[in-house]
Design a protein around this nucleic acid. Structure first.
Length: 114
DNA sequence: GCAGTGACTAGTA
DNA sequence: ATACTAGCCACTG
């Protein structure tokens, strides 16, 4: 089963679901944990195709600079920030999150042969 | 099939 | 600090 086509989004969603409340992860981090290192863009794309009302905590995924990434539709950036603040995340004066403080430190369960 | 796009990132200037 | 570049790859027209 080395086939990876069609298995990307589910694996990405599974990782995002593991992000604890009050924590954040970067797109690149989620990509690496899902087994697709270097494919941060695909994480953003996967989250973008998420339906409304999803259980997947997409708001906990931000960019590597600690900012809420800008989207096509205006207003959602503000909405995402609101959701994170409700979870206890504090934004600094520059509108950014301190990744050293809130970054989710997940154990990389590397699926190597053992 | 090719070119443009995107909720990205690391590097360089 | 900002601006631009190359690399990345699925999706779309």
């Amino acid at each position: 089963m080395g086939d990876r086509s069609g298995e990307r989004y589910p694996r990405i969603y599974a990782v995002v679901r593991r992000i604890p409340q009050g924590r954040v992860a970067t797109y690149g981090q989620v990509a690496a944990l899902a087994g697709f290192p270097g494919q941060a863009r695909q994480v953003g794309y996967a989250l973008h195709s998420l339906p409304e009302g999803t259980e997947v905590p997409w708001q906990r995924v931000i960019n590597a600079r600690g900012e809420v990434s800008l989207r096509s539709e205006a207003g959602w950036e503000r909405y995402q920030r609101h959701l994170l603040e409700e979870e206890g995340i504090v934004f600094n004066d520059s509108g950014r999150v301190d990744l050293d403080l809130y970054r989710w430190e997940a154990a990389l369960t590397t699926p190597r042969s053992r």
